[in-house]
Design a protein around this nucleic acid. Structure first.
Lengths: 200, 200
DNA sequence: GTCTATACGCAGATAGAC
DNA sequence: GTCTATCTGCGTATAGAC
């Protein structure tokens, strides 16, 4: 917590943070376009116009929300990966558990539906942020496993995309009536992936 | 082509069909919410209000468009699968080629962003339609390969979800600067999948 | 920091002429 | 079948009081 002598109350639950929390929940469950500033204000418990004291526009609020979310994933993934440095299987399993523990990103929806509504500058910002915080860490897992000789030489980017696309489809897959729990699906996926990659 | 004696012009390019064509292109590149009836009318070359002669509402137009698209996939998949009955690898490769030949479905975006804006009844219709036309056929491919003893016993639903989630992420994956062509990615995916499933 | 009030534009849909 | 004209509601954003 920053040492801001002028802050009258706790910094941790400042008005701005409460807005970011509620906005994140709404944006990433219903999408940028569908959520209105009134929805967010109502969730926070203030009036719609009051949001504009904290954020200059809906778009800037969305960017702030999304960057904070990506950054949280970057830290979470970094810690998860460093705690399981022994082998690829345990790393992937831990990473899967990390994603399951977080609200779904709905990355494809974000890229396809939300991003095109933003300024070109903000689109570029968020794209870069998503690569650094999510895609690159997963890539590194596979790249390092290859350096250790643990798996065959398939392009890490391909494998990372592979892995993430299945993770992303989990929220949908588990809407089926007879769906298995998320943890089961992820581990099954990892098993299929590795039994094809492992040298016997 | 149906034998409609009263049709004054060719049925193939009737006004209704032209609207469906343009609406499909717009809806499935930009999403239900973002596309306006004026956008569709402009693409067709008529005025916005004229659309309401053919379809009672934007929602019904979207449902008609999406059902027609799913049905096209059902027929395309059926033919593709029947033309490659020998083994799983050639079937999957052909199915991958089929999906690449079609405009992306953006299924996850549709479920996450578009569907919740529709009536519960229409949501149910489209969900059922997507299962019958897309999910079930892919499931059958894997189930039959298991019956032939070609692959291990992993739940076909899991493998179908696996396969489709990667197909769905192709439009995104190929936006990267140094991206490989779609065909390459799909075949690489199939190779990883099968080398883990094939009995050696 | 939050409020009320309001300006402004846009999107879906209807009415009725041709 | 397509048009013009219009109604209605909603969403973002601003102005200014407290």
């Amino acid at each position: 917590m920053p040492d801001d002598r002028n802050s009258p109350k706790q910094v941790s639950s400042s008005g701005r943070e409460r807005i970011l929390d509620e906005a994140e929940h709404l944006f990433h469950t219903r999408g940028y376009n569908t959520v209105t500033m009134r929805d967010i204000a109502q969730a926070v418990g203030i009036r719609q116009a009051s949001l504009y004291y904290h954020f200059p526009s809906k778009e800037q609020l969305f960017v702030a929300v999304t960057e904070r979310m990506f950054e949280r994933h970057r830290l979470g993934l970094q810690q998860t990966i460093s705690e399981n440095e022994d082998n690829l299987r345990s790393q992937l399993s831990a990473v899967g558990a990390w994603f399951i523990s977080q609200p779904p990103i709905h990355f494809l929806s974000m890229v396809h539906t939300d991003m095109p509504l933003l300024d070109a500058e903000n689109t570029a910002r968020l794209s870069a942020c998503s690569s650094e915080c999510i895609f690159d860490p997963i890539c590194q897992i596979f790249a390092q496993a290859q350096q250790r000789g643990e798996i065959r030489n398939v392009r890490p980017q391909l494998l990372a995309g592979f892995f993430l696309s299945v993770i992303e489809s989990l929220p949908f897959a588990t809407t089926f009536a007879n769906a298995a729990p998320k943890e089961f699906i992820v581990n099954e996926m990892i098993a299929v992936l590795l039994d094809g990659l492992m040298r016997d």
